[in-house]
């Protein structure tokens, strides 16, 4: 059984998608006043930083960027056990009255975003919370949608979307990982050749967003 990767976005594609999202955020908010970008660990954080850099470039306004580790707010801690890879969150300023844009790499079941909503509310009561994702792959299990989407990507549940970013993985790309020959595969079980959760939680490999409930 071989894991085959189909390219979805290359480095230029990622750059264009982020550029468009940055413009859309500015357009929707009529500027960058009161904005706060909150990146979801891990790969949402560099994406949020890049959006902030683009907004700075377009508008000359420095938008604060926060980092959220939503692990403690996940709804699957009871069944999967608490994890060791708990990272420090940080918010650069009070979120009350801010217009917060959550930034993540892949939107899938929506459970991570639900946890992120609860996490951000522990910092205060923002005026508004929006969601920006690089890839929306469908299969939602909760009533959640993204406000800004880099790429809508219809997928099968057995497939996995890997988002790689320069800051963590050494290159920018989005690929669809699927198994050949097509095999019956339970979600969460990975074929050889696909990086495991353990591996990328140590920061050495790219994220494979395939398992339901993965952060």
């Amino acid at each position: 059984m071989v894991a085959a990767e189909r390219p979805i976005l290359d480095a230029d594609g990622v750059r264009r998608a982020l550029t468009r999202i940055a413009h859309e955020i500015l357009e929707r908010h009529q500027g960058a006043e009161g904005l706060l970008l909150a990146g979801l660990r891990r790969r949402g954080v560099p994406l949020a930083e890049r959006l902030a850099a683009l907004i700075q470039q377009f508008e000359g306004v420095a938008v604060p960027v926060g980092e959220l580790d939503v692990t403690m707010f996940r709804d699957d801690l009871q069944t999967r056990g608490t994890r060791s890879s708990l990272q420090r969150s940080s918010m650069p300023q009070d979120v009350t009255e801010a217009r917060v844009v959550l930034v993540d790499d892949v939107l899938y079941t929506g459970r991570t975003v639900r946890a992120a909503l609860e996490a951000i509310l522990s910092y205060g009561r923002p005026q508004q919370i929006q969601l920006a994702v690089l890839v929306d792959r469908g299969h939602r299990e909760l009533p959640i949608r993204a406000d800004y989407v880099g790429k809508n990507l219809p997928t099968a549940q057995g497939e996995q979307v890997a988002v790689r970013v320069q800051e963590i993985d050494g290159r920018d790309e989005v690929v669809l990982v699927h198994q050949e020959p097509a095999s019956v595969q339970a979600p969460g079980v990975q074929a050889p050749g696909v990086q495991t959760q353990e591996a990328h939680s140590r920061g050495t490999h790219s994220r494979v967003a395939g398992q339901p409930g993965e952060p």
Partner: peptide
């Protein structure tokens, strides 16, 4: 130690309670 650092950040939030 690393987990404790994450916990200390939680204690600095207006709402210090987390659900795990």
């Amino acid at each position: 130690m690393e987990t404790a650092e994450a916990m200390r950040e939680v204690l600095s939030r207006p709402i210090k309670r987390v659900p795990p």
